[in-house]
Amino acid sequence: MLYLDNAATSPVRPEVLEAMMPYLTHRFGNPSSHHTVGEDAAGALAEARARVARVLGMRPGDIVFTSGGTEANNLAVKGIALGRFQHGGSRHLITTPIEHESILESADYLRRLHGFEVTHVPVDTAGRVDPDAVARAVRDDTALITIGYANNEVGTVQDIPALAAIARARGVPVHADAVQAAGWLPLSAPALGVDALSLAGHKLGAPKGTGLLAVRGRVPVEPLLHGGGQERGRRSGTEDVAGAVGIATALELAEAGRAEASARVAALRDRFVARVLATVPSARLTGDPVRRLPGTASFTFAGTSGEAVLLELERRGIVSSSGSACAAGSDEPSHVLVAMGVAPEVAQTAVRFTFPAGLDQPLDSVAAAVEASVSAVRSGG
């Protein structure tokens, strides 16, 4: 089996599991406990926080460990927006219609329960947001701009520094969902110009259920979880020390190999895309053809059933997906593709291939399997 659904999740790296194991066994203390066992756990947690901060170019106190990317995005959108509202009455949010569901649903929660106005800045047919359009959308009462660094379905990469410069000029915090970008794109917050970044461990080789929000200390954040005041009062609850060590280790490993892996996998992906487009007449690449994640190739195959293509691919030993795993089981067409102007009936034929950073083999056989799968579905068997 060839697993090409790494945007959904990736296997835990052996080095990560090894680093976590002591904190799952004999070094099991609660970091809030005031004895030697607890202090040992607190030291490991502090070290993990500092390691993450070094990679992101932030302060250790800026790092909030969470249960994953969804919680990190919820804390960013709800927490920052409500914090800004409490400190100045701002009640306006800017995002795009192609964001992950955890962003869009958080924005809708603010609209429904707290009276926020939400502006969804449109994207073009490649999934790109125009910084000038964002600039026009900013108002005096804008509390937050939240835009994904790289789209989870089509892989389009946004010009985050340009968007952040607009926000900075107007005194508006900007958050980037960097869950899909981690391991492929630079994550230095100062270079990107952002105030907050979300990451998920299981996209990097850490376990599911690990994640973090990096948010500058000067940005007010209203906590979503209340209790003992852990994470500097921004997320109460006993910290997952093993998970923090795991995501810190995975992030360091990914960053160390990022430049080489990105270049190598992008070259393989480009050959794969060229072969599919040349041999499958109905194939259309979705997303920006150039500014896209190195490991992402997504297509529509008009006149087919995307689900049938996926099943035929798996029968041939290739595991891929139709888009976001968080929307699996839905009969609705991809909100990302529809926002990009793809007809709903064509959007339902989408297939996404997402390659691992460790990919080191030619993809001609995969491209041939795609061609055969589409032909088989069209011929009825």
Rank of each mutant, 00 (worst) to 15 (best):
L2N: 05
S305P: 03
G211Y: 14
A53M: 10
G61T: 07
S373Y: 08
L197T: 04
T36G: 12
G127Y: 03
E18A: 15
G148I: 05
L212Q: 00
A325Q: 11
A41M: 06
R91T: 04
T249N: 12
P356C: 04
E345A: 14
P281V: 08
V129L: 07
S198R: 07
K203T: 00
I147V: 15
A137T: 13
R315I: 04
T300M: 04
V64G: 13
R316W: 03
T25S: 13
G341T: 05
A266S: 04
M21V: 03
E312N: 06
L185H: 07
G317M: 02
V309D: 09
L104Q: 09
V319T: 08
M1Y: 01
I63L: 11
E314M: 05
L163H: 12
Y109N: 09
G233M: 01
G183M: 07
G381T: 12
D159F: 00
S236D: 01
G341N: 00
P14N: 05
F65L: 03
A283D: 08
A274C: 02
A42R: 15
F116E: 08
E307C: 07
S262N: 01
A182C: 08
H26M: 04
G171L: 14
F299M: 12
A150D: 09
M1E: 10
V342K: 03
A244E: 11
A256L: 08
V138L: 08
L337D: 03
R168Q: 13
V221G: 12
G201M: 11
V290L: 05
G233C: 03
A169W: 01
I103A: 05
H34F: 07
S282I: 02
S375T: 10
A19S: 14
E15C: 12
Y149P: 05
H335C: 02
P60D: 09
A191C: 08
R291I: 03
G243R: 13
G323S: 01
L113T: 13
A176H: 11
V194L: 15
A350M: 15
H34N: 10
P14F: 02
Y23V: 06
A266W: 03
Q180R: 15
E71H: 15
E99S: 01
V194A: 12
V351H: 03
D331C: 05
V377P: 07
L144Q: 12
A297L: 07
P289N: 04
E332Q: 09
S322V: 02
G193V: 10
A278L: 14
L313V: 12
R235A: 00
A135N: 14
R232E: 07
T142K: 09
A143T: 00
L2V: 06
F299G: 11
H35F: 09
D141H: 15
G227S: 04
R27L: 15
Y109T: 14
S262E: 01
A250P: 01
S321M: 06
E255T: 15
R84V: 00
S10C: 07
V123Y: 01
A42H: 14
A7F: 01
G323L: 01
L56H: 11
V134Y: 10
P122Q: 14
E101P: 10
S375H: 10
R170H: 14
A169P: 07
A42S: 11
V377N: 10
L192C: 10
G183K: 04
S188C: 11
E314G: 02
V219W: 11
E15I: 12
A242Q: 13
E99R: 01
L56W: 12
M1D: 11
Y109V: 09
V118A: 09
A176I: 12
V219G: 10
A50H: 06
I166K: 04
